[in-house]
Simulated scan of single mutants.
Amino acid sequence: MTTSSNKPDFRQLLKRPACFAALGFGAGLSPKAPGTAGTVVAIPIYLLLQPLSVFWYLLATLAAFVIGIWLCQQAVNWLQQEDPSAVVWDEIVGYLVTMIMAPQGWQWVIAGFVLFRLFDIWKPWPVKLADQQVHGGFGIMLDDVIAAIYAAICLQLLYFLL
Rank of each mutant, 00 (worst) to 15 (best):
A130E: 01
Y57C: 09
Q107Y: 12
P103V: 15
I67R: 00
A18W: 13
I43T: 07
L162Y: 15
C19Q: 07
F10K: 05
L29E: 10
L129H: 14
Q50T: 01
D143T: 11
A27T: 05
S53A: 14
G105I: 12
K32E: 01
T61N: 05
K7P: 01
F10N: 05
F10Y: 15
P34H: 04
Q80A: 14
L155G: 01
M141N: 02
L115I: 01
I100L: 09
L157C: 13
G137W: 06
G24D: 03
M101S: 15
A151N: 06
A111W: 13
P31G: 04
A21G: 01
K32S: 07
R117M: 08
V93G: 01
I110Y: 07
A147Q: 03
I146H: 05
L59C: 09
K128A: 15
V76T: 06
P103E: 03
A102P: 12
I121W: 06
I100K: 00
F20H: 06
L62K: 07
Q156F: 06
L48Q: 02
T98F: 09
D83S: 04
W122K: 10
P31V: 08
W56E: 03
L58F: 14
V145E: 03
A75P: 07
L118G: 03
K7T: 14
F138K: 10
Q156D: 01
F25G: 01
S30N: 03
P126V: 05
A102F: 14
G137H: 10
I110P: 00
P51Q: 12
G68P: 15
Q156W: 10
P84V: 12
T2R: 04
P51F: 05
K123E: 08
Y46M: 10
P31H: 02
L129W: 15
D83V: 07
T39I: 11
I67T: 03
L14C: 11
P126C: 04
T98P: 06
S5C: 07
C154P: 07
L52S: 12
Y46V: 06
N77I: 13
P8V: 11
C72K: 06
F113E: 07
I110R: 07
P51Y: 11
